[in-house]
Amino acid sequence: MAETIRKDLEYENDPNLVHNAPTKVRVKKKIRTFKRYIPFFIMLAPGLLYLLINNYLPMFGLVIAFKDFNFVKGILGSEWVGFKNFEFLFKTQDAFIITRNTLLYNGFFIVLNTVSAVGVAILLNEIRKVFFVRLYQSIILIPFLISMVVVSYLVYAGLSVESGILNNTILPLLGLEPISWYMEPKYWPFILPIINLWKSIGFFTIIFFSAILGIDKEYYEAATLDGASKWQQIKKITIPLISPVIIMMTLLSIGRIFYSDFGLFYQVPLNSGMLYDTTNVIDTYVYRGLLQLGDIGMASAAGFYQSIVGFILVLIANLIVRKRSKDNALF
């Protein structure tokens, strides 16, 4: 056994040997190499099969958007309707609202999260005692650990009309009237970014903090010797040196800007119909269309729109990343 393998390797390593070998041997060798890889194909089969079912089958299912789909008739049995579903979708006000909400919220999240997390990471880097660095880091990561359902409970304790702490304690202290938070859409463009920041700041801080830790300490020593102030060091050393990471993270988020955190927009506002104007995004629209309203035509058209535009955005974002640094690009 070992003998034959070693022979195989000899053939592989020495092109002359392969070329000079008679054809029969070459074919035999090919079969044998292939045989050698059979265990590998067995290993990758189950995982690949899963991806085919979970990811590739639904890609073909996108044709639903061009059909008058009916669960009883199935995909093949349903009739083609061309672009009818899209016509209906884009005639409604909804198409504009969900696109606007998705883009504006996610765009704002990117800016807010990045600026805040870079700030926190810089402050964290100033702390000398390792104990405190660990402590702060652990605490601000706690919200990242819990599900959006639990977040919606925490928000409810704050905003509930009858018993929320805002209406009962904080607003009266400021001399303000109680507000029906779950019925007034105008407040949610402020509420949602705060919740999103609260939940994800720990995650982004860790990424930027680890980038700062990677900076060579000698830069700071030299700067201190030259009499540079802390503020100057932050502006001239820290930020420029972590900017590749900042740009990378931003571009990757831009690539995902057409997808939103479903829980944040569905569960946290308690699926309140009065708030749709400022809480409805593509993901929640598709979910409601499919499972609550039974409007599969519109849902599948919106889903198709999201898949295609999302795909184009990922490609563009990656193209830009790739131009800056090949290592950081997805492909």
Partner: peptide, 15 residues
């Protein structure tokens, strides 16, 4: 490729 493109909720639900 599964990272770049996906079918979304409606076809996944169907599958």
């Amino acid at each position: 490729f599964t990272l770049l493109f996906n079918g979304g909720l409606v076809p996944t639900y169907y599958v």
